[in-house]
Amino acid sequence: TTYKLILNGKTLKGETTTEAVDAETAERVFKEYAKKNGVDGEWTYDDATKTFTSTE
């Protein structure tokens, strides 16, 4: 399943996707990605669109 991440950081904005077996796995991948890029925001998830959003 393809999951999408929308980053709305103070210094980094953008989108990326990952293939994962479930939302929990995708969330771990995306949170590590955000951390590596210095984004520490509030997380939301929309199951209908398989989209995570992190907003600082």
Rank of each mutant, 00 (worst) to 15 (best):
E24L: 12
V29N: 05
E56H: 06
T11P: 03
Y33C: 04
G9M: 07
K31W: 06
I6C: 07
R28G: 06
V39L: 10
A23G: 04
R28I: 10
I6G: 01
T53Y: 13
T55F: 09
A23Q: 12
K10P: 10
T53L: 06
E42K: 11
E32D: 10
T53F: 10
T17I: 09
V21I: 13
K13H: 11
W43Q: 01
G41V: 05
Y33Q: 02
W43I: 05
Y33S: 01
L5H: 02
K36N: 12
E56K: 05
F52Y: 05
D40Y: 14
R28W: 08
D46C: 09
V39P: 02
E56G: 05
N37M: 15
V39F: 15
T1R: 10
S54C: 15
L7T: 03
T49V: 05
T18F: 14
L12I: 13
K4P: 02
T44A: 10
E15T: 13
K35S: 10
E27P: 00
E32F: 06
A34V: 06
G41H: 04
A48P: 06
A20D: 02
L5Y: 04
T1F: 13
S54G: 05
T1G: 09
T51L: 03
A48K: 12
T17F: 14
T2V: 14
E42W: 12
T18N: 03
G14R: 14
F52K: 00
G41Q: 04
D40R: 10
T11L: 12
V21A: 13
T44Q: 09
K35A: 12
D46S: 06
G41M: 05
K13L: 08
T44L: 07
G14I: 15
A20F: 06
L12C: 15
T2D: 03
Y3C: 03
K31R: 15
T16F: 15
D40L: 12
T44S: 13
T44W: 07
T44K: 09
A26S: 01
K35F: 12
Y3V: 02
D47C: 08
L7C: 07
V29C: 09
A48S: 12
T2M: 13
K36Q: 13
T44E: 10
T53N: 05
K4G: 03
L7E: 01
R28M: 10
N8G: 04
T11E: 11
V29K: 08
E27W: 15
E27S: 09
T2Y: 09
E42N: 11
E32A: 13
T53Q: 06
L7W: 11
V21L: 13
R28N: 07
T16L: 15
A34K: 02
G14A: 14
F52G: 00
T44G: 06
L12R: 08
N8H: 10
Y33A: 02
S54I: 15
K36P: 01
D22H: 04
E32G: 05
A20C: 09
D46R: 03
L12T: 11
N37H: 15
K50Y: 08
T17Y: 14
E42D: 12
T53S: 07
T16R: 11
T55S: 09
E42I: 14
L12H: 14
Y45K: 01
S54M: 15
W43K: 00
E56M: 07
V39I: 13
W43Y: 03
N37C: 15
E27Y: 15
V29I: 14
D46E: 06
T17Q: 09
T51Q: 03
T17N: 06
